[in-house]
């Protein structure tokens, strides 16, 4: 699914985020990227959804060379990737339903199809009864489930989550992790970045530990 070959990322003013990263992530894997704040976890994910370009090295996502992807092809890459954030990134003036449908509307899907798919994912994240609520009327865990629903509504082959449980209490965090596990069981590749190495190790899956921009185990 993902191949990184000697990936180095240096931001402006010489700030080095990643240094000579070599990683192979297979299709259908569940992977945790762990490491302290500023270790390069976010940059790792940003490279995959083409929010930033590597300074050097080669990056393949689903067989496509993303390191030299043209700007006009970026939207099409992102339609195959679902991204979930720590701060949810929901639109607060839109309802739960609209927030999820938004991801389909902007890729010009027909209305009937948008409705069908949105209802389906609302079911999966168990928020059908809250579909007309606004995000500020929901708990943190519920908001994150809306964000997950938006990420999976497009049937992505890959889900990236950047500290998805960082703002949640332990119970809700576990609940959210379960959603990712379930999605992974359906065959979707899931990559979760977290600073909590112990929890990641407990999940018993592929864990990549980064520190100061390098893989340390």
């Amino acid at each position: 699914m993902i191949q990184m070959r000697h990936i180095t990322k240096v931001y402006e003013k010489g700030i080095q985020a990643l240094n000579d990263i070599n990683v192979e992530i297979g299709r259908g894997e569940m992977v945790f990227i762990t490491g302290p704040s500023g270790a390069g976890k976010t940059t790792f994910l940003k490279l995959i959804y083409a929010e930033t370009k590597p300074t050097s090295g080669l990056l393949f996502v689903g067989g496509k060379n993303v390191s030299s992807l043209a700007s006009r092809d970026v939207p099409y890459l992102r339609r195959r990737i679902g991204v979930v954030y720590q701060d949810f990134k929901l639109l607060y003036q839109k309802t739960v339903f609209e927030n999820i449908a938004f991801a389909l509307r902007v890729i010009s899907l027909p209305s009937a199809e948008i409705y069908k798919r949105t209802i389906k994912v609302l079911n999966i994240v168990e928020l059908t009864h809250k579909k007309d609520a606004f995000p500020h009327q929901l708990s943190g865990g519920e908001q994150q489930r809306v964000a997950i629903a938006r990420a999976i509504v497009n049937d992505p082959v890959l889900i990236l989550a950047d500290e998805p449980t960082g703002n949640l209490d332990a119970g809700m965090a576990a609940n959210i992790m379960n959603f990712f596990m379930e999605t992974n069981h359906q065959g979707t590749t899931v990559i979760v970045a977290t600073h909590n190495k112990e929890k990641a190790l407990k999940m018993g899956t592929h864990v990549i530990h980064v520190d100061s921009g390098q893989i340390v185990g």
Binding site: R72, P75, R79, K89, F102, A103, V106, I107, R150, N154
Partner: peptide, 12 residues
Amino acid sequence: EIMKLVGATPWF
């Protein structure tokens, strides 16, 4: 920002 992330084209 969200439009960009979910794959809306710049023209859209």
